[in-house]
Computed example of a mutant assay.
Amino acid sequence: MIEFVKGIVDEVTPEYVVVENAGIGYKIYTPNPFIYKRDKEEKVFTYQHVREDILALYGFQSREEKSLFTKLLNVTGIGPKGALAILASGNPGQVVEAIEREDEAFLVKFPGVGKKTARQIILDLKGKLADVATELMPDLFTHEEIGKRDEASRSLNEAHEALLVLGYAEREINKVLPSLKEEKLTTDQYVRKALQKLLK
C-alpha cells in the first residue's frame, strides 16, 4: 500500500528508524537502521506487513532489496524478523548468489536459519530471483538465462496453481514440484509430470 516514504530521519534506533513526512512520523523497521542519519532526507522503500496482531512497516534502500525481503517471507519458517536478519549482512547480492549456488553453509550462518530452513530457502527461491539479481548481481545470469529462468519459473508457478485448483494439498504439491525445477518446461508439461509423480 505504501511503496516508499520520503522525508527527514527523526530518530534512529537499533531496530527501526522514524521518518517524518508531512508532519507524520513513520516507524520503519530496517535491516540496519544505522545506515540512515538523523536530520537527513531519505527515501525508504517500504513493505507493509499485516497480521491479526501486527501492523508494521519494513524499509529498504532499494526496490530490489525489498523484493528479496518479500520473497524470503514466502519461505516456510522465515518471518519478517528472520528476513531482516538475512538482509542485515549488507550484501543481498551474496544471499542471491548463495541461493543460486545452493550454498547451504553460507545460509545457515544467519540467526534462526538451520539446515532445514536453508534447504527450504533454496528449494523455494532458486531460479526465482532473476528480477532481484539483475540489479544486485548483474554478472550472475546472462540475459538469455534470465529469460529462460523467468519463463520456467512462471510456468512452474502456474502449474502449482493448477494443481491447487485440481484439489491437491499444498503439502503434496511441494513434494513433487521441487524435483521438476531443473527442467525448463511449459505449464502443461509441468502439470502432466507432477500428476505422474502424484499418482504413483
Score class of each variant (00 low, 15 high):
residue 171 R to F: 12
residue 130 A to S: 12
residue 132 V to E: 13
residue 129 L to P: 02
residue 119 R to L: 14
residue 166 L to G: 04
residue 152 A to K: 08
residue 152 A to G: 07
residue 162 A to E: 10
residue 170 E to G: 04
residue 119 R to H: 14
residue 132 V to L: 05
residue 159 A to H: 06
residue 168 Y to S: 06
residue 141 F to D: 00
residue 155 S to M: 15
residue 154 R to D: 13
residue 146 I to V: 15
residue 126 K to W: 00
residue 172 E to T: 01
residue 139 D to C: 05
residue 139 D to H: 11
residue 129 L to W: 03
residue 153 S to K: 08
residue 174 N to G: 00
residue 159 A to E: 05
residue 133 A to P: 09
residue 151 E to H: 09
residue 135 E to M: 07
residue 130 A to Y: 04
residue 121 I to P: 00
residue 128 K to D: 08
residue 138 P to Q: 09
residue 130 A to D: 05
residue 171 R to M: 14
residue 140 L to M: 07
residue 156 L to Y: 02
residue 170 E to P: 04
residue 119 R to I: 08
residue 132 V to W: 02
residue 157 N to C: 11
residue 134 T to L: 06
residue 135 E to W: 03
residue 173 I to Y: 13
residue 118 A to H: 02
residue 133 A to V: 10
residue 137 M to G: 02
residue 152 A to Y: 03
residue 129 L to M: 01
residue 124 D to K: 03
residue 130 A to E: 15
residue 127 G to T: 03
residue 142 T to C: 09
residue 130 A to Q: 10
residue 151 E to P: 03
residue 121 I to E: 04
residue 141 F to L: 03
residue 136 L to A: 05
residue 173 I to G: 13
residue 174 N to P: 01
residue 120 Q to V: 04
residue 160 H to Q: 10
residue 169 A to F: 09
residue 129 L to N: 01
residue 127 G to Y: 01
residue 173 I to N: 12
residue 127 G to V: 00
residue 120 Q to I: 01
residue 174 N to E: 11
residue 121 I to V: 14
residue 158 E to H: 13
residue 164 L to I: 10
residue 163 L to H: 10
residue 170 E to F: 11
residue 146 I to T: 12
residue 161 E to K: 13
residue 151 E to M: 11
residue 170 E to W: 09
residue 126 K to I: 03
residue 138 P to W: 10
residue 158 E to M: 15
residue 136 L to D: 08
residue 131 D to Y: 10
residue 123 L to Q: 09
residue 121 I to K: 05
residue 167 G to D: 09
residue 150 D to Q: 13
residue 125 L to P: 00
residue 119 R to D: 07
residue 149 R to D: 05
residue 149 R to K: 13
residue 174 N to Q: 09
residue 146 I to S: 08
residue 165 V to Q: 14
residue 127 G to R: 02
residue 167 G to K: 06
residue 129 L to E: 02
residue 128 K to F: 07
residue 135 E to Y: 11
residue 164 L to K: 14
residue 142 T to F: 10
